[in-house]
Every structure is written in structure tokens, then in C-alpha cells.
Simulated scan of single mutants.
Amino acid sequence: MSEINKNNIIDKRKTLVFKVVFVLLALSVVYAVVMLINAPSGVSKKEYEYVKTDYVLMILQCVVGMIVIFLPSRVEQKFGIDIPDIMEIIYFIFLFCAIYLGEVQNFYYRIPFWDMILHAFSAGMLGALGFVIVDFLNHSEKSHIHLSPFFVSLFALCFAVTCGVVWEIYEYTADHILGTNMQKFMTADGTVLSGHATLGDTMKDIIVDLIGALVIVSLGYVHLRKKERRLAEKRLKQAEKVQVVKN
């Protein structure tokens, strides 16, 4: 199979995944709006019972998901950054797992460590995206920047962790304004946590973001170091050939 055919197949799969995730999020918004009308107010009295604030959160998350799902294509169009199709597919799958499965299907409470798994997954994905951004800048004709493997890795790590911190700020803001429970300060049975326990979810997310990004960045650093050595050896051999010709 030719490279062009492979790229066409991957592009079709990317489009299919995009459409499926977008439609599911749109249908979830309609479902949440309908359920919000008759949902009880206040704090949940039963485990896994949805109250009005839960449906408000569901609507918010699905709407945000329907907006940010266009982010890769907008970045490519505006900045000319070529984001690999595989990475875009992974991004769409992440939105599906985080929003549709996590919020709509309540996997955050039903599946142990679901939140931790997604944070590790997203940190690795953002770390890889950081490498893509720097690689674009390093090879851009408009840019005279060429970062060493260490600084490429440092940027990718800072980029991933910063995105994780911004997400926590978003969760805190939503909880404060809308009365939602994104930062999980309340358990599934309605028990409100207090003291040190209330920081558990936020700090755990940030720590997992750091570890997940660090793993991917470390692998990327090793790859870049090997690539730099191969290029250096290639230049050395070319220089030796030129010297032999001159002599």
C-alpha cells in the first residue's frame, strides 16, 4: 500500500471519529437539557443520582467539548502547524473518554481511577504536542530558533503541565460559579469533603499530569539525542569526504 493511500485511510478514519464524537456530544447536550427540567435540586441523596448541578456540568462539558474539538484544525489553519492525524484521532478519543464516558456515562465515579488514567493520558498527549510545536518552530523558515534537545524537552514538559494547571483553574472556576463538582470535593453519595481531603483531587491531578508528561518528555529527549548524534555523524562523514576530495 502506497504512502498516499495510507494517509487517505487515516484521514478518513480521523473524519469518522470526529463526526461520531461531535454527534454524541451534541445528543448529550439535548439529553442533559431535557433531564435538567425534572431533576431534583440540591445535593444528591442517593449514590449516582444526578441533580440539577450535575446536568449543568454535563451541558457545560459537552458544549466545551464541541468547541475544542475544532482546535487542532484551527491551529493548523491559523499557524500552519502540521499536527499528525494520529495525534488528532487520539485527541478526539480523549474527548470521548473524558466528556462522554466521564461525565455523561458517569465513569468518573463508576470506574476506579478513571480520572487519573485520563490525566496521565492527556499529559502524555500534551507533552507530545509540545514536541510537535517546537519541531515546527525549529524547521520554520520564518523562525531562526533552534533549540537543543534539552530545551525542546523542557518546553514540552512546561507546556503539558501548564495546560494541566489551566484545566484545574477551569474546574475550580466552574465549581465556584455554577456549583458543580468537577474537583470532586463531594463524593458520589453526597458527602462533602473538608480540610486536607478537599485538595486531594486537584493535587493528585497535577502530580499525575507532571509524571505523565515527564515520561513522554524523557522518551522524546532520548529520541532527539539519538537523532542529533546521527546528524552529527552524518555531517562529520560528509566533511571528511569533502576533505579527501580537496586533498
Score class of each variant (00 low, 15 high):
Val244Tyr: 13
Thr191Pro: 01
Gly42Ile: 06
Ala156Thr: 03
Val208His: 01
Gly190Arg: 02
Lys78Tyr: 09
Cys163Gln: 08
Val21Ala: 01
Cys62Trp: 05
Pro72Val: 00
Phe79Cys: 04
His144Ile: 07
Asp205Lys: 03
Asn181Glu: 06
Gly179Trp: 03
Ile177Trp: 09
Phe92Tyr: 15
Glu47Ile: 13
Ile211Leu: 07
Met203Pro: 01
Asp11Val: 06
Phe131Pro: 00
Trp167His: 08
Tyr50Thr: 11
Leu126Ser: 10
Leu36Ala: 11
Val217Thr: 04
Val17Lys: 01
Phe22Gln: 09
Glu171His: 05
Pro72Tyr: 01
Gly124Gln: 05
Gln238Trp: 05
Glu168Lys: 00
Ile207Tyr: 10
Thr53Met: 07
Thr191Glu: 13
Ala32Ile: 05
Val56Gly: 11
Leu57Tyr: 10
Lys14Arg: 12
Ala98Met: 10
Ile90Val: 14
Tyr221Asp: 03
Lys241Trp: 09
Lys246Ser: 11
His176Ser: 14
Glu171Ile: 02
Val23Met: 09
Glu49Gln: 15
Phe79Met: 10
Asp205Met: 03
Gln77Tyr: 12
Phe22Thr: 09
Val192Ser: 06
Ala26Pro: 07
Val51Ala: 02
Val68Met: 05
Glu76Met: 15
Met1Arg: 07
Leu219Asp: 05
Val165Ala: 12
Glu76Asp: 09
Tyr50Gln: 15
Tyr31Leu: 11
Tyr91Phe: 15
Phe92Trp: 12
Val29Lys: 05
Tyr91Ile: 03
Leu193Arg: 07
Leu95Cys: 04
Val242Thr: 15
Leu178Pro: 02
Asn181Tyr: 04
Tyr31Phe: 11
Ser122Gln: 11
Phe70Met: 04
Gly80Ile: 04
Lys234Arg: 15
Met58Ile: 10
Asp11Phe: 08
Ala123Cys: 03
Cys158Ser: 09
Val68Gln: 01
Glu228Tyr: 15
Met186Phe: 04
Val21Phe: 04
Met186Val: 08
Glu76Val: 07
Tyr108Asp: 00
Val17Glu: 00
Lys204Asn: 15
Pro112Ile: 01
Met66Phe: 08
Gln243Val: 10
Ala39Gln: 03
Tyr221Phe: 14
Phe121His: 07
Val161Ser: 01
Asn138Thr: 02
Phe70Ile: 01
Ile211Trp: 00
His223Asn: 14
Phe159Asn: 02
His223Thr: 14
Met66His: 08
Val68Arg: 00
Tyr172Trp: 14
Asp82Trp: 03
Asp115Trp: 02
Lys45Glu: 15
His144Pro: 03
Leu129Gly: 09
Lys45Gly: 13
Asp189Asn: 13
Pro84Thr: 06
Arg225Ile: 15
Arg235Ile: 08
Glu88Phe: 01
Gly102Ala: 04
Gln243Trp: 12
Ile69Phe: 03
Tyr31Asp: 12
